[in-house]
Design a protein around this nucleic acid. Structure first.
Lengths: 217, 217
DNA sequence: ACTCTTATGATACAGACGTACCATAAGAGT
DNA sequence: ACTCTTATGGTACGTCTGTATCATAAGAGT
């Protein structure tokens, strides 16, 4: 799994880096970090642990990310982008694309830790959030942007449902989007600390959506 | 501030510990931990840092809490108990004790990081929550119990409001209590990472309560 | 007055951590 | 063929961490 380096150089005959694809390698290491953090917590993430998990030498981690701070930041960006793709994939297979409620429910359920992958995602994401509370440089660029984007996307879906007449016309869309995103984050946390099952969290969310969309149906 | 040890022995002439009040000293150290964690994050909490913040020697921290794990646990318990008292004080001065809505709103607003003390409380609490996600022994006893107690207390208030006819009679009280607690936790987090102001968070919460209590008035 | 236990100080130790340094294999450009 | 740059391995260094050890001051019980 390790020594596959100059393979990628043959694949793309250009003169770009040297022999290996830097982006690919950085992604590989970043994913190793996420696995370690998901298993033992973000506080257990060390350059040596990440190197071991990725199956590379400590020196390599240093080479691709010069410092630990940059490694942490790079992994966060990778996680952001990965979640972007994950959401797109999930929403593409939404049950009924004509139903805004289905879209919104799928959207929010994705944020809940239902399977192993989303569990890791929520755990690591929340860990980063806690770091961002005391590390302002970490917070500003990559973090808030991601959450804001989600909230905006959801607000768009609500707007659409409102146009379709599925929602009460005097709904405050931005406030409701904020409520839904923060609610699903809070629910996810309660699941992760073992206070509630994922099923129970989905039920709470579902009841609120029932209320929003009118309990007919 | 440091060498006040045998003063407490004179105050209470009994033969209980030896010269100093252990519980008082442990509380002092636990509060130092909370201050450090609130300022620099829970990951910056070290036995030496706590000792320095408390103005005692490293040995003393070792003496009163034998190990770091016990120090962390003890501080969490202290935080729990402190929050208990804080809530009681806040609710005692609720604006209108006859209005369940006022009670509930005060209850939930207390969970939001509006002033420095509640900011620290939420930050440190969330940091512990993240730890509890990967450290099962930490989670079970002190953590979930605290949140469950809050949720139960809130459910009681909702039940009371329901009896007073202020809520829709087909409200699912436990689900709503869960929603409100997780929502206020999620809102608090979004405030702490700087995504939203405390005022905006309170507004989102207020709008939802308006909906619950019927928007008349 | 004398001992005993509690309370506190100082410091030492082994391990882990982030980072820096030195070496070298090997493709790229000439 | 020769050099130059990139990519990788190995390892050493200084610092910080949690914990353990040795020593001792001083109130408590007799």
């Amino acid at each position: 799994m390790i020594q596959t380096y100059h393979k990628s150089a043959l694949r793309k005959g250009r003169v770009v880096p040297r022999t290996v694809d830097h982006a690919e390698r950085r992604a590989h290491i970043a994913e190793a970090l996420v696995r370690v953090a998901g298993r033992e917590g973000l506080h257990a993430v060390t350059m040596r642990a990440v190197a071991a998990e990725a199956g590379v030498s400590l020196r390599l981690v240093q080479y691709y990310f010069q410092t630990k701070a940059q490694l942490m930041l790079g992994a966060l960006e990778h996680l952001e982008q990965q979640s972007h793709e994950r959401w797109a994939a999930r929403l593409a297979e939404a049950p009924d694309p004509d139903s805004p409620r289905g879209y919104i429910e799928a959207f929010l359920a994705e944020a809940l830790p239902t399977d192993e992958q989303s569990r890791i995602f929520h755990l690591v994401g929340t860990s980063y959030a806690v770091l961002a509370m005391t590390d302002k440089e970490l917070a500003e660029q990559p973090f808030i942007a991601g959450v804001d984007r989600l909230e905006g996307q959801l607000a768009g879906a609500l707007e659409q449902a409102l146009s379709a007449g599925e929602l009460s016309p005097d709904l405050d869309v931005p406030a409701e989007a904020a409520l839904l995103v923060t609610l699903s984050h809070g629910l996810g946390t309660s699941v992760l600390i073992g206070q509630r099952s994922a099923k129970a969290a989905i039920a709470v969310l579902g009841k609120h959506l029932d209320r929003l969309f009118g309990e007919s149906g």
